[in-house]
Amino acid sequence: MIEIKNVYKYFNTLKVLKGVSTEIKEGEKVVIIGPSGSGKSTLLRCMNLLEEPTYGEVWLDGKLITPPDPYLHREVIEASKTFVKLFGEALEQNPDANEEELRESVYLSIRQNDLLKRHEGRAYRKALKAIAEENYVDINLARRQMGMVFQNVNLFNNMNVLNNLIAAPVGLKLKTKEEATELAMKLLTRIGLADKVEEYPQKLSGGQRQRIAIIRSLCMEPRYMLFDEPTSALDPEMVGEVLALMKELADDGMTMVIVTHEMGFAREVATRVMFMDEGVIAEEGTPDEIFRHPKHERLKDFLSKVL
């Protein structure tokens, strides 16, 4: 399961994500749609930390892959100097108040008003470190679980097709060269490109390249696949073959998160559609709910333009 907790992403002053929380459960096929600049690609890239969220956390299978966010952990906030100070003041002002309620209200006000400072004392640092250590996972190990397919393909230009496919499993010592080659050939045969095994990426068509990029991720035997507008840079006649492969993957039960503008594909494959607008998830639901019965004004407007 990929859990996204209250993720914000700022590029300098540009606020791209403004508090996104969601979960991607095993077996789900989540399609993210939305106007350009709404933060869908950024959200996807936060999932495998190609972008580091400014605030918030991303969890993969119960392990924390971002640094812990103090605002998401009550025990961390309560260990901070600010909390101790504010709680002391509050207690002085209403000595008769229920202590538990007072703690709660101070905690909430720190959370809501962003009151933590850069330095909050040793207890705070220790609490934060404890969370980081308890849930630590090496990001490079985490990324092996998540295949990623890019809009502009990004096959390795200095390697032929076979080496593109086996580079990661062999280079990371997960498989021997023979095992990796066997799997690569099996997948290449499946997509009908076994005869291209010696070719360099520059020699292939856009659709062939993208399909090979997809199976390059599959060669790592990931549990999740992230697709970042995989068909947006392709010639129209190539789109079908790539979508067909993705459909096959979905039917095989792969957990997928897909950012796309292909509404037909979204309707057919998605178990859940997420509509993003101005850095938040404006609406989500089954394809039927989103496409047939949109509630949000912005979604209705968006659908009228793309459908």
Partner: peptide, 21 residues
């Protein structure tokens, strides 16, 4: 930059991405 990103996304560390790709 996409070459680096593809390498990192597959699980290569920074050094290996540099060296191999």
């Amino acid at each position: 930059k996409g070459q680096t990103e593809a390498g990192r996304a597959l699980g290569f560390g920074y050094g290996k991405t540099m060296l191999k790709i």
